[in-house]
């Protein structure tokens, strides 16, 4: 912890800055000083309405979704001991998308709260299938295998979604906006709907820090801990499903946040999961909200969805990891 202390301050400062920017920057130019005073003393003006009813809820949504994705990514990487694990890469997002689009097409569901349950189901099924394929054979789930299995399952699911959206045009119209993760344009009630799921997932994940450290020591020494290993894995999988499912149902699939953030967290604290998990929860919103603010600015008067910005920013990180490590480690 000691060697990470100055960095921890930097992370917290960055988080504070990005929260400020997210409340201060938008389609309507409002001077930052005025925004600041409106935050504390809403005066009933339309500027106050924009700050309190649009920007603050959007920022809180980004905070929650970012934390969920970052922690889910850290959990995945710890559980599978796989530096390439990411909900987007391991088919979890595609599973949630396929389940949601199926529900929209067959049942005509549009209620975000109903989305969540279908997203949970799809995310859970897809992760089990990917993990099952990746662990086939004696040598177990290597990072490369999980990534490839995730790619295969994602491609099949995405082709399925494409087929459905061609048969049902209304589904296409909804899907193609949802397919690009976005923080804007959600009803104010969405935050309250997903908050319980994300909070529960975060608490569960952070509580798993100590047992995850045992797994990190290696499969064999971990095995001595016996049943706790199984329990940790099951609880970890539940936490991942809840976090990814809720985040994906709320704002659509967002890839690479869960991949890149844990690497940054580990670089700061070292491999202690008790610290990596909460730190990921702090760093991920910086990346997500930062990408969101960039998206609001670069494409004025329109907006660039956060899912696009984060993929364009996160994929190079992924490629850098792949290039840096020796293949034997991968």
């Amino acid at each position: 912890m000691r060697r990470g202390a100055p960095w921890l301050l930097v992370v917290l400062a960055a988080l504070a800055l990005v929260l400020l920017l997210s409340v201060g920057v938008g389609a309507r130019p409002i001077p930052l000083g005025r925004v600041w005073s409106l935050v504390w003393r809403p005066d009933g003006s339309s500027d106050a309405a924009i700050v309190h009813d649009l920007r603050i809820p959007r920022t809180l949504l980004g905070l929650m979704v970012g934390a969920a994705l970052g922690v889910a990514g850290a959990l995945m990487q710890a559980l599978t001991r796989n530096p390439l694990a990411d909900p987007g890469l391991l088919g979890v997002n595609a599973g949630a998308a396929a389940a949601v689009v199926t529900a929209t097409t067959l049942l005509g569901t549009v209620d975000p709260l109903a989305y969540i349950w279908f997203a949970f189901l799809g995310a859970a099924v897809a992760s089990v299938v990917v993990y099952g394929i990746g662990t086939a054979g004696r040598s177990g789930a290597t990072p490369v295998r999980l990534a490839l299995a995730g790619t295969a399952v994602s491609i099949a699911l995405i082709a399925y979604v494409e087929g459905l959206t061609i048969v049902d045009r209304e589904a296409l119209d909804q899907y193609r906006f949802w397919a690009v993760g976005a923080l804007g344009g959600h009803p104010g009630s969405l935050n309250a709907q997903i908050a319980p799921f994300i909070l529960a997932g975060l608490v569960l994940a952070v509580a798993l820090g100590r047992p995850l450290n045992a797994i990190g020591l290696g499969e064999d020494s971990g095995r001595a801990l016996g049943a706790r290993l199984v329990r940790t894995r099951v609880l970890g999988a539940v936490a991942i499903t809840v976090l990814c499912g809720a985040a994906t149902a709320a704002v659509g699939p967002i890839a690479f946040v869960g991949l890149a953030v844990p690497h940054v967290a580990r670089a700061i604290t070292g491999p202690d999961e008790r610290l990596v998990l909460p730190l990921s929860a702090a760093i991920a919103p910086v990346m997500l909200l930062g990408a969101d603010v960039v998206g609001r600015v670069v494409n004025r008067p329109g907006e660039l969805e956060v899912g696009i910005v984060s993929a364009l920013a996160g994929a190079p990180v992924f490629i850098a990891i792949v290039r840096r490590r020796r293949i034997a480690q991968l």
Binding site: R28, L54, G184, G185, P187, P301, G302
Partner: peptide, 28 residues
Amino acid sequence: TLSAERLDMLDEADVLVLVATREPQTAN
């Protein structure tokens, strides 16, 4: 497109015709 933050630009209109056939977009 007029972003949610710029809907005040509609203040000049005496009457609005709202196409309300898509949900959840209309409710949002």
